[in-house]
Design a protein around this nucleic acid. Structure first.
Lengths: 128, 128
DNA sequence: GACATCTATCAATATGTAGTTATATAGTAA
DNA sequence: TTACTATATAACTACATATTGATAGATGTC
């Protein structure tokens, strides 16, 4: 049984938290791993503008068709994108709009960390 | 110059979105990669309960001290945790509370996908 | 039918990284 | 000083995966 039925169970309190179980940690880690490749983020950036076929993604992202197709398969198996056949083509689209919020939060965190680091370099708070 | 000053630039519209530049994609991917290991999520789950020394994290997460220390170094280099020396120990703490929201969103997405998959298995909509 | 296009997958290589063991470094206590 | 504890790092193995090229399968067109 490769997938648990209660993969993302979290702490009972209403606040945001990390997965409470080890199995939940593994499921969440798997999804983060799907988002941990620059090429896949570029693919998602293209799909954020609307559903697209594989060749359209290739034209936008670059690289070989085989590589893009495999990355799309990874995103599909993680339920990050969905696909449907349209004639001879396969149209991919983002399945979970919450992904965009996630990437925004991460981007903001990077900006904040960069500001902190810049302030340290400028002498406001020397590194311990 | 290993780090850009504007790593997470996003689209001008107020809505959440993916990084606009390729460099931004790589920075965001690096941070997602730091979150893509179950052991590191377990470490963060421990740190979410409060700052802790390396040996305390080892006692909670398991594994060898060397491995936990290396994972903490990965989280530190991604600005996900911060550390300070206290006598002979090193105390680690979560640097960016937004991480908890991110993990919650991912966990909810997994739950939603599991519900959809369960509904498909129960015959409501056979897989294409 | 033959042919072209689009997509998925296979095989092979190269790179990255998690884990272990052993060791080095730093701080504390005697 | 020596001894002990806590943490970081180096060397190594093993495994996962990103990438490419070749190819197979499916669909549409002639």
């Amino acid at each position: 049984m490769p997938r648990a039925l209660d993969p993302g169970r979290r702490a009972p309190c209403g606040a945001a938290s990390l997965p409470a179980t080890d199995a939940g940690c593994e499921e969440v880690a798997t999804r983060f791993r799907a988002l941990s490749e620059p090429t896949r983020l570029k693919i998602l950036r293209r799909l954020a503008r609307g559903e697209a076929s594989v060749s359209e993604v290739v034209a936008d992202v670059g690289g070989t068709q085989a590589n893009v197709s495999k990355h799309l398969a990874v995103l599909l198996s993680s339920d990050i994108v969905r696909r449907k056949r349209q004639g001879g083509r396969t149209l991919y689209a983002i399945a979970d709009p919450a992904l965009l919020s996630i990437c925004s939060i991460v981007g903001e965190g990077i900006e904040r960390a960069a500001r902190v680091r810049a302030a340290e370099i400028l002498g406001m708070a020397p590194r311990p």
